[in-house]
Design a protein around this nucleic acid. Structure first.
Length: 639
RNA sequence: GCCAAUGUAGCUCAGCUGGUAGAGCAGCUGAUUUGUAAUCAGCCGGCCGGGGGUUCAAGUCCCUCCAUUGGCUCCA
């Protein structure tokens, strides 16, 4: 007999070799039907894998992320089985589960697999799933494994097996399909009820662009058709909110082939929005003790040789600009820090002046790979809401904390309530990739970790994701659809102060090296506005939106009154305009609704007499009559 | 940068196997003076992404460049 401990703390005795699925059956048939995988002593395992000794047990269902990932991983196998049946002789790379669904990398040889094929594969998957095929685990020796795939002629699997240790290799079989896999998997295919193959894309074997491009097929599956529909609806909703589409519709920004790829052009509406965001940030930062500066869009190449960026990124950047003078070279600035270091350096500093917080909406240019450009979220010219804090090592943690507070405040003012932080540290295995001393790195990493703990911020930690000059923290913001976006960033830097030879005079009358913090709560104005559009569906907060209201006269007869309404509201500090076209009210309402202007003020004969406006709220309809100034108050109260 | 797809009027899209460009919306003009999501009519609008080629003939076929989209890789 063995002791099995459940998550609620109860311990029960079972026969040695019992499977989690059998335990589930003992609890209830319903549970057994829903069990997808099991957590045994903290590790996710097959629900069919016998337990041989005392263990902590968790039964995972669709509600658990472990359940979902097992489910989707098994779905990837099911898809591979279907593919193999439909296209005999194809070869397989890897097929993992991902955040939403799964994919499998396939080498179709000479066959050109297209979107038209997907339907057929979906049908086959459903057909196979209905057979309730079990996922059968089999331990094999390395030799057996190699022999199997050599005979099958799948060089990708052979390559994978060669990296594995003998004795740790398992196969899983569903129907006639056998795959190299560590598992875990579902007991059988029955729970897979709804299948959608989403798209196909090229992907290099092992992410290496020198190697073969395989066909990656993305899919998602669900235990219920209803859930699939909900997911597809969510994708539809995301499409509707796409900032590229809304940005064009609301005339916020544009791109021009002639100006160049990845160089956004802000249209009047977008500029209004951005200016208001900048004003908001300037005010917040002034309160937090920042000073504002302006620096040029370029700098001598030498500046970036000093900073080390030229060596690291020079090859892949916009190339130096030459002048009529022999040998003189400038670079478009890819970041603002070197300029800010020069500002720090323009006069000697006492420890009493620190921390010095230098802020700038600094426009920078980076030659991102052409395939990487995407709307406003990945561009080649963008404006960072940047600042650099120069402080003493003792002040580092407090400054870091203050930046965390500021970022939180700013994000919540813009309606982002859910976020986590990702802390990126050095790859301990690969320390030579980074510049700066071990000691400095340790100090900086500790400061970040301590500050986030102190503020109670939920964090994840990624080793090897740090910048080459220091560890960093990125805010991961969840939008209204639950999608995660990386926005603001805070980075500690012990390196640039060294390279620019920054110093201050301490209380001991000796020279000391300041610590530098790079930080941008939004990341960039472009990226932030892009995310904000998707988050808000283009319905921006009242304080931010380019136009707060539109006056819609019922006919030309009431234009004079409309003008009076407009001027009174403008005097009260509101932003809006009149739709003075000779069109029906219905038409004016429709057009204004589509422009997502928050309030429509309909004025006609009934309103003129008593200084009234009929107020219609975007997306909601008529909300009744108000006095003109009453409306102004109504708006101002909401801001 | 790599793989794939796409690029036709301001926007959304037709245009079959090559025969010389079409609709709706927007815009303009006129009529209508309109009460909570599209009033009616007429008109204007296209080097069919750029360049090169094949052909008697190219939006349609080929090459190349540019851009966009979906991925891969990357992201100071």
């Amino acid at each position: 007999m063995i002791n099995i401990k459940f998550p609620d703390g109860t311990v029960k005795k079972f026969d040695k070799g019992i499977t989690p699925l059998e335990i589930a059956k003992g609890i209830s048939e319903g549970l057994a039907r829903n069990v997808l995988a099991a957590g045994v002593n903290g590790k996710v395992k097959d629900a069919l894998l016998p337990i041989e000794e005392d263990a902590d047990l968790v039964l995972y269902t669709w509600k658990d992320k472990e359940g979902k990932s097992t489910y989707w991983h098994s779905s990837a196998h099911l898809m591979a089985e279907a593919l193999e049946e439909l296209y005999p002789g194809i070869k397989f790379g890897i097929g993992p589960d991902i955040e939403n669904g799964f994919y499998y990398d396939v080498d179709f040889g000479d066959y050109e697999f297209t979107k038209e094929d997907l339907k057929k594969v979906e049908k086959k998957m459903i057909e196979l799933a209905k057979k309730k095929q079990s996922y059968t685990r089999k331990e094999v020796s390395k030799k057996e494994a190699l022999d199997y795939f050599t005979e099958k002629g799948d060089e990708y699997k052979i390559e994978l097996i060669q990296d594995l240790k003998d004795g740790e290799i398992t196969f899983y079989q569903t129907g006639d399909f056998v795959d190299l896999c560590r598992g875990p998997h579902l007991p059988d295919t029955k729970p897979i009820k709804a299948v959608k193959l989403l798209n196909i894309a090229g992907a290099y074997w092992r992410g290496d662009e020198k190697r073969k491009m395989m066909t990656r097929i993305y899919g998602i599956t669900f235990p219920q058709k209803k859930e699939l529909k909900e997911y597809l609806d969510l994708l539809e909703e995301a499409k509707k909110r796409d900032h590229r589409k809304l940005g064009a519709e609301l005339e916020l920004f544009m791109f021009s082939d002639k100006v160049g790829a990845g160089l956004p052009i802000w249209l009047p509406n977008g500029t209004l929005l951005r200016k208001r965001l900048e004003e908001f940030l300037v005010k917040e930062q002034e309160e937090a003790g920042y000073v504002q500066v302006i620096t040029p869009h370029l700098g001598k190449k030498d500046l970036y040789v000093t900073s080390g960026h030229y060596e690291k990124y020079g090859q892949d950047s916009f190339q130096p600009i030459h002048t009529p003078r022999e040998g003189e070279e400038f670079l478009l600035k890819p970041m603002n820090c070197p300029h800010h270091c020069e500002i720090f350096n323009h006069k000697p500093h006492s420890y009493k002046e620190l921390p010095i917080r230098i802020a700038e909406f600094g426009t920078v240019y980076r030659y991102e790979q052409s395939g990487e450009l995407h709307g406003l979220t990945r561009v080649r010219g963008f404006t960072q809401d940047d600042a650099h804090i120069f402080c003493t090592p003792d002040q580092l943690k407090d400054e870091f904390l203050a930046v965390l507070e500021l970022t939180k405040k700013v994000l919540s003012k813009l309606g982002f309530e859910k976020y986590t932080a990702q802390i990126s540290l050095r790859d301990p295995e690969n320390k030579e990739k980074y510049i700066g001393s071990d000691d400095n790195w340790d100090k900086a990493e500790k400061a970040i970790i301590d500050a986030t703990k102190e503020i109670g911020l939920e964090t994840t930690t990624e080793l090897g994701e740090a910048a080459f000059y220091g560890p960093k923290l990125d805010f991961m913001v969840k939008d209204a659809l639950g999608r995660s976006w990386q926005l603001g960033t805070i980075q500690v830097d012990y390196n640039l102060p060294e390279r620019f030879n920054l110093e201050y005079i301490g209380a001991d009358n000796q020279k000391h090296r300041p610590v530098m913090i790079h930080r941008a709560p939004f990341g960039s104005m472009e990226r932030f506005v892009g995310v904000l559009i998707e988050h808000s569906e283009g319905k921006f907060p009242l304080w931010l939106t380019p136009e707060q209201f539109k006056v819609l006269p019922v006919s030309d007869l009431y234009l004079d009154y409309a003008n009076k309404v407009l001027s009174e509201l403008k005097s009260a500090g509101l932003r809006g305009s009149i739709d003075n076209r000779t069109e029906s009210v219905g038409r004016k309402i429709r057009d204004t609704e589509l422009k997502k202007i928050p309030y429509m003020l309909i004025v006609g004969e009934k309103e003129v007499q008593d200084n009234l406006v009929s107020v219609r709220k975007q997306g909601e309809g008529d909300i009744g009559k108000m006095q003109i100034l009453e409306f102004a108050e109504f708006i101002n109260k909401q801001i």
